[in-house]
């Protein structure tokens, strides 16, 4: 069992998952964040049953109304219920976060591992390719994607995914470079562990805490980036209740009807915050070397 080499003997006795859960339970803040996120996901999934109003139906009789008994979070410029839109919008915004990070993260990790592990010309070539991508401003890439493929949330996801790739790649490569020299990898190598196994079992787990921390940040960043894209008119297509689009749209009314930005802004803030705190907790719990 080569895998145990990387782990302290005690970890081999408990099951890794049990160990992880035991540690994670101690992260109280992270547990709260997880609960918040679960609630958000559930409310998004069950939006049709929870939302008090249809998110797209206008009511010109109650435009820009502040919070009231009928509309807890008020109404927007078309008289649509903001609470309902935030609940439905969770579907869009959370998908933007998860999908773009999953897509960009996977590609980035693979590139980073290969690059850091094999080094040489392959490393050079891959990293220069990443440089090209990094140097290419994300917003311009997004404009390109939207110009070529048309406006819409799918294309927002692709754009954000593309510009997460190089950061994941460089991050994983950095750790891989360091871990390659570390005692346990050297030891594993010396007893003839294969390259794939070295990368996947010995280096990747070592790189994971960093990746998870970054992915958790990135989940939030993706949601924020979607908002920025809406700000410059390249975001979700109307009448999508994507939170960033709501916020960008509502900013025209800052000073007149602040609830148009306050609630979508808070939704984004809370979600991004929760992702980050959760990521922190996960990192601590995942790290096999921590006691």
């Amino acid at each position: 069992m080569s895998a145990t080499l990387a782990q302290p003997p005690s970890a081999a006795i408990r099951t890794p998952i049990g160990e992880f859960l035991r540690r994670f339970r101690r992260q109280h803040l992270a547990l709260i964040a997880l609960a918040v996120l679960l609630a958000l996901v559930l409310s998004a999934v069950f939006a049709p049953w929870i939302a008090p109003y249809d998110p797209a139906t206008p009511d010109y009789a109650s435009v820009l109304d502040g919070p009231s008994a009928a509309h807890w979070l008020g109404t927007d410029a078309y008289g649509r219920d903001i609470l309902s839109r935030i609940i439905w919008g969770g579907r869009v915004s959370l998908s933007v976060g998860f999908l773009s990070v999953a897509l960009g993260g996977m590609v980035g990790i693979v590139i980073g591992l290969i690059s850091g592990f094999f080094g040489g010309w392959l490393d050079g070539a891959l990293m220069r390719l990443m440089d090209v991508l990094l140097a290419f401003p994300g917003i311009i890439l997004a404009i390109g994607v939207v110009a070529l493929l048309g406006p819409g949330i799918d294309n927002v996801i692709y754009s954000i995914a593309v510009f997460s790739v190089p950061v994941f790649a460089r991050l994983v490569r950095g750790t891989t470079l360091a871990l390659k020299q570390s005692l346990y990898v050297q030891a594993a190598r010396s007893i003839g562990v294969g390259k794939m196994a070295l990368m996947l079992r010995h280096i990747l787990p070592g790189a994971m805490p960093g990746v998870i921390v970054y992915a958790s940040l990135r989940l939030g960043t993706s949601i924020l980036t979607a908002a920025s894209l809406s700000f410059i008119g390249l975001g979700a297509r109307p009448p999508s209740p994507e939170w960033g689009a709501m916020l960008a749209d509502g900013r025209s009314f800052l000073g007149v009807a602040d609830h148009l930005t306050l609630f979508p802004g808070l939704a984004i803030f809370v979600t991004v915050l929760a992702f980050n705190i959760l990521g922190d907790g996960l990192r601590d719990a995942l790290d096999q070397k921590l006691r």
Partner: peptide
């Protein structure tokens, strides 16, 4: 919290 604010807001 700092990173969680949409920058234009």
């Amino acid at each position: 919290s700092g990173v969680s604010f949409p920058s234009f807001w």
